[in-house]
Design a binder for these strands. Sequence first.
DNA 1: CCTGATTTATTTAATATTGTATATTTTAAC
DNA 2: GTTAAAATATACAATATTAAATAAATCAGG
Lengths: 179, 179
Amino acid sequence: MTVRMVILGLLREQLLHGYEIKHIIEEHMGDWTSIAFGSIYFALGKLSEEGFVEVASVEQEGNRPSRSVYQITDSGREEFMRLLREGWQKVERQYYDFDVCLFFMRHLPQNEVKVYLQRRRDILEEILEHIECHRSEQLSMPEVPALADAIFNHTKFHTRAELQWVSDLITKLESGAYS
Amino acid sequence: MTVRMVILGLLREQLLHGYEIKHIIEEHMGDWTSIAFGSIYFALGKLSEEGFVEVASVEQEGNRPSRSVYQITDSGREEFMRLLREGWQKVERQYYDFDVCLFFMRHLPQNEVKVYLQRRRDILEEILEHIECHRSEQLSMPEVPALADAIFNHTKFHTRAELQWVSDLITKLESGAYS
DNA sequence: CCTGATTTATTTAATATTGTATATTTTAAC
DNA sequence: GTTAAAATATACAATATTAAATAAATCAGG
């Protein structure tokens, strides 16, 4: 659903073809989303089928694959607003793959688990440091909108939570709570 | 990948058919995973094709749909350990759909956004309360393993982070940071 | 005892995502 | 100048998830 919203949101402003959409996503939203080519072309096809977008023109440069330039329709604009409101009102439940690994912990030797957990803590510390560094860089650039900072913060808060949880887990494990 | 690991992990202990697997997942891991029927049957088919599991027998009770009982193979046991180690060593990057909504905030009136954010904060507060209540219930039952508590904590830490972030966002928005 | 809800069990279609293949053009480096 | 890498652009197969359809058995309540 997110892919659809992003595509419609970008097409609101200008005509675009698939590759351009991917490019804009990477440039402007690359830090906090990841949408593959396949997803974009699939969504474009679907949205087109449903009448939310239309092919405005088919361009060709030299011998490169021809590209379809898409255009949003009126019902597409409505659909965008619907998706946006839906998203603002939905609280998503996140699941963590690592919980499953933790559940099957008993199948690994304890010292192996310990090594993995400590490495995980180290990596999370690095990521958090990297985030904080990236952010202070941003803050020194006044052209970066405050909104980007808020989105960035989201990841920061969760990374910090993850780090705290892992540290907690290590402490409890060392105190022999799970043996 | 998680689905495969769960299935192999459960089949390590006993012979099971699809429905039973779904049942066990819901009963033992329902609080922190969500795997649909389709995913299970698809994964069983794939694992079977790859030789990680085999159909041990096909049972039938009355006129109900006959059920294939699966059995893990030696290579399946190896695959389980491989997946488990892989999972323990991978740090997953989480993306949040809500970030996309935030990005397109400018398309909604400010007071609408405010209402949504406050509702979001209220819901998160409720969820957190519910989690804390559930946990104190668990702690009073000595038969619940300490591990379950650790997994539960994971969700708690992240829910708390989410709540803090949203509260933060509301404060900043009220102070006019994004207008 | 019969009616409706729940449980048992799988299949299928629709939807969605990832990864890879393809093929050209432009750019950079040596 | 030529060769390797990066950028341009899409298509398709493989993988994965969700939702709905099917259909019988069981159980609870009146």
